[in-house]
């Protein structure tokens, strides 16, 4: 909480001013020295920040290009329904490399057996 100066007794105000009075007045030269010392450091950050920004833009652009190029496989998230089997069947039919985590029957490869397994999981009614 800030207490305005005029709420303090005049004697206390004087005592405080005396206690914090500086013997050496700040000169304009000192300001110039401080500013001169600070400016080069600030200038060093400008090209570094610009380079980081450009690198970020280039990386983002590259990722966007890879994701949107015609040959790229679109991201697919498991649904647990027939779309999973359909997705793997389409990828296999297109000759695409299918990620190993689609090895539903755990035989070490992703093939039609996994498509059947995923389809059966989708329609399962027994517990």
């Amino acid at each position: 909480m800030t207490i305005p100066d005029d709420h303090l007794p005049p004697r206390l105000q004087d005592a405080l001013r005396q206690a914090y009075r500086t013997n050496e007045p700040f000169s304009a030269d000192r300001d110039a020295v401080v500013l001169a010392a600070f400016r080069p450091a600030r200038r060093r950050w400008i090209p570094l920040s610009a380079a980081a920004g450009i690198a970020l833009l280039l990386t983002g652009g590259l990722l966007f290009h890879l994701a949107s190029s015609p040959g790229a496989a679109p991201a697919y998230a498991r649904t647990g329904d027939i779309r999973d089997a359909f997705y793997v069947a389409r990828e296999l039919a297109a000759g695409q490399q299918v990620a190993g985590d689609w090895d539903a029957n755990h035989d070490g490869r992703v093939d039609d057996g996994d498509v059947r397994q995923l389809a059966m999981l989708a329609v399962r009614v027994s517990p």
Binding site: D81, I82, A85, F86, A89, R90, A93, R116, A119, M120, A122, V123, R124, V125, S126
Partner: peptide
């Protein structure tokens, strides 16, 4: 279509099919 054989002789079944190519 694909279905769980366990659904036979029951009153609930899930059927599914897809077509590639």
């Amino acid at each position: 279509p694909i279905y769980d054989p366990a659904a036979l002789s029951h009153g609930r079944v899930i059927v599914a099919a897809f077509h590639v190519g």
